[in-house]
Design a protein around this nucleic acid. Structure first.
Lengths: 239, 239
DNA sequence: AAGAAGTTAATGGGTAACCCATTTAATTTG
DNA sequence: CAAATTAAATGGGTTACCCATTAACTTCTT
């Protein structure tokens, strides 16, 4: 209900004030804050706490700090990096397992695809088909074929998320993808059949997407992701 | 591919070292770090950068810092608070809209319910039914009836997430719920019919869940959440 | 002129020495 | 024995420096 009051610390007040100014628009993206020595004057405090506040705001992704003349703190547009970072901490701290994350990804990718089926524009479909053509070229053996295929596969997933037209899904998807990726740093070599299967999955997905069959797309996407996870877990470096 | 090298700053090295020690288990939850003056000795640096590092780690939810004798930095189990915080920033910075967040919630709640339909134990079902009984009591008019009903409704959602047995879903759900909630600080009064409808939704969901009808549960849950969002948007304080 | 090289000054980063406030534990006192 | 007091450890904050970096300015060379 209420939050514990520990706020006797100056840096917390500084963070709150600057963050407030950014969030309600008094400070806009790209604006430059005064130099630390001036801020210290304005806030009537000393550099220690001020620096701590700037560190925190930097870590939150709200500021970027450059050194040298004409340097200083610049207001930054916060992206999903801090969200991904803290989620990554949970994963690496083993509070959530790879299996849970994979299952989550399965559901989210399914939902994203289902929404995309309702909203994809002809332009989206065209782009997906062009990506499919690229993917087809990369179906083959060898490590560089695998990497190229993965790259296109990823672009297809992102394109579908964009077609769904919801940035939350897009953010979450990329976030989860990045965090899962960390588990498979050194990909073992995948064979041509695996890529062939995956390529077929993608074709089916795009086809169903074009026909706006939302539930079918969801199921196809889920089984596609599940297949990928299964392969990764069986052969990959799950520690 | 590579990350920009700006790491001449001492505090970043300190953060990396301490974070590393926590993540690979050399420091466990509950462990106490040496006093700042000792750490300064160990790291051969000065208090300024050390304090900045501790601030960052505190903000990441990895440390808790107490003052006074026997105080100091204690390793903390990082929860979802930092993730929720940074997501909240994105929402408040208007990078993502309430509509997008609501749609996301719809999909996630649907997936959670579908998984729960496959996994719910008899004990889970029993608990849900007992919560339904409580909800029934609160269906009525007046602001306190509405608040009580909301409280039970929320408990039911959480219980379903727990039944799904995937903490990622549980985290994400609570995170999204908290962030959506902020938009509706002052709930306008809802009438008895609205609560009646919602209660009926919940009953249908639990019934389908007991029968393990995953797709039906997903659809029911989605329409339940959608109804809630629609009401909130039409009458609520969406700025 | 034009460009290269050096200079300057602003700015963040870091250090050291110090004091204050808080908090727990030990000690004194009634 | 309990309450009050004192002591000591610890984080928080302040001040006064100095250093490293960097953009802008100046000067020199061709």
């Amino acid at each position: 209900m209420f939050k514990k009051i520990t706020q006797q610390r100056i840096f917390e007040d500084l963070v709150a004030q600057i963050e407030g100014a950014i969030l309600d628009g008094r400070l806009k993206t790209g604006d430059q804050l005064p130099a630390q020595r001036d801020l210290v004057d304005m806030f009537q405090t000393s550099r220690g706490p001020l620096r701590e506040a700037l560190r925190v705001l930097e870590q939150k992704g709200l500021l970027e700090i450059k050194r040298g003349v004409r340097g200083g703190a610049v207001v930054k547009q916060p992206g999903m990096a801090p969200v991904a970072e803290s989620l990554g901490l949970l994963v690496r701290h083993r509070e959530i397992t790879l299996a849970e994350l994979s299952e989550f990804r399965e559901g989210v990718e399914g939902s994203v695809a289902a929404i995309a089926a309702q909203r994809a524009t002809p332009a989206d479909i065209r782009q997906l088909k062009s990506l499919l053509k690229q993917a087809k070229k990369h179906v083959g053996d060898g490590i560089e074929a695998w990497q190229a295929f993965c790259h296109v596969d990823n672009r297809i997933h992102v394109a579908i998320a964009k077609a769904a037209g919801n940035r939350v899904y897009e953010f979450v998807l990329r976030m989860v993808h990045d965090n899962i990726q960390q588990y498979y740093e050194a990909h073992p070599l995948k064979g041509q059949p695996f890529m062939q299967e995956n390529y077929q999955d993608l074709c089916d997905i795009v086809t169903a997407l074009e026909k706006r069959q939302a539930t079918a797309v969801r199921a196809l996407m889920q089984s596609h992701v599940r297949r990928f996870n299964r392969y990764m877990n069986s052969q990959g470096g799950n520690p």
